[in-house]
């Protein structure tokens, strides 16, 4: 246990400290993207843990991003209000559609959320007066918190890191709690849990809403950090990124998408000189993970741990 605490302190120290050691804007930028990816991928992981792959998750991030942007730009709200509002709006949306959507399972849920995601992106593209269409929205104001405006990538890194940490802790907390035990029991034997008085639908809707909440917040950070929004950041292919991060990291625990994001987000940058092979390596990595590493990196680490640290 002492080893574990020491490791935890070391991880926090590295996560908080590296931007002060490596003073490179570009590398910090990758760090921001990585932290945002951790929030969205861990949110997707919550859905995967209840056995429902939601393809609409990328569009949910877009909903959060556009909500925050429009609240700040059109209504003049401060970021401090727009930020939580973006999470709450997506959570409310998920809570409203959840009771209909989550009645279907497996492949049908995948296809249903696929259609929903495409539909939402289509609205972003076509409702030009509100969402700016395919040209997107430019010069989104920078986020300001308690009177100080966040400008540098480093300040956004800490905002995104805090969000990533809260998302991760929420995921761990939910699945370790009694609620998590009920959710796992629904995967194992739904009729049995029902016979004990559990209403499966309300539990699933709650997870859908929580996952939507954190995804919406991540969208808000993304919007104010990049200062530019366009619909193609929220299509099916962005969802594929989150999914690949989960599959390669391991979908069995929230640690999986964290490791997956740390490993995969910098990958396109490492392969910048061979751009055409970037996508191929991505595909091959995914293929290898599905065929040979079914529990991802986390599964591999657990196996190594069992062998070397009895």
């Amino acid at each position: 246990m002492r080893l574990r605490n020491a490791a935890l302190v070391a991880i926090v120290a590295v996560a908080v400290g590296w931007p002060f050691v490596v003073e490179n804007r570009y590398i910090t930028h990758i760090g921001v993207l990585m932290a945002i990816s951790i929030s969205t991928s861990v949110s997707l992981n919550m859905m995967l843990r209840i056995g429902q792959l939601s393809i609409a998750q990328a569009a949910f991030m877009g909903l959060g991003a556009y909500t925050s942007t429009l609240l700040v730009m059109r209504l003049g709200l401060p970021f401090l209000l727009a930020f939580p509002a973006s999470g709450l709006l997506v959570a409310a949306f998920a809570a409203v559609i959840g009771p209909i959507f989550l009645r279907v399972k497996g492949v049908y849920f995948v296809l249903l959320t696929f259609a929903l995601g495409e539909g939402i992106v289509l609205v972003f593209q076509e409702w030009v007066s509100l969402f700016g269409g395919n040209n997107g929205i430019h010069s989104i104001p920078k986020a300001s918190l308690f009177g100080m405006t966040l400008v540098s990538p480093r300040s956004y890194y800490f905002l995104a890191l805090a969000l990533a940490a809260v998302t991760f802790l929420a995921a761990v907390g939910i699945f370790r709690s009694a609620v998590g035990a009920v959710l796992d029991s629904l995967n194992e034997n739904e009729p049995l849990s029902q016979s004990l008085g559990v209403n499966p639908l309300s539990y699933r809707v709650a997870v859908f809403a929580v996952a939507g909440f954190f995804t919406g917040l991540a969208g808000s950070v993304y919007a104010h950090y990049t200062g530019f929004l366009s619909p193609d950041a929220f299509t099916f292919w962005s969802l594929v990124d989150m999914l690949v991060i989960n599959v390669i990291g391991g979908i069995g625990s929230p640690l999986g998408p964290v490791l997956g994001a740390i490993l995969l987000v910098p990958l396109p940058e490492l392969l910048r000189d061979v751009r055409q092979y970037q996508m191929l390596s991505y595909g091959l990595l995914l293929l290898t993970a599905v065929l040979f590493l079914p529990s991802g990196i986390v599964g591999l680490l657990r196996k190594l741990q069992r062998r070397w640290l009895p």
Binding site: V107, V240, V247, Y277, Q278, M279, L284, L287, V290, P294
Partner: peptide, 15 residues
């Protein structure tokens, strides 16, 4: 896993 594999194949063929 079938779905993920199909996605991987799709990405590989496109690239």
């Amino acid at each position: 896993n079938c779905m993920i594999l199909a996605l991987a194949v799709s990405i590989c063929l496109q690239s």
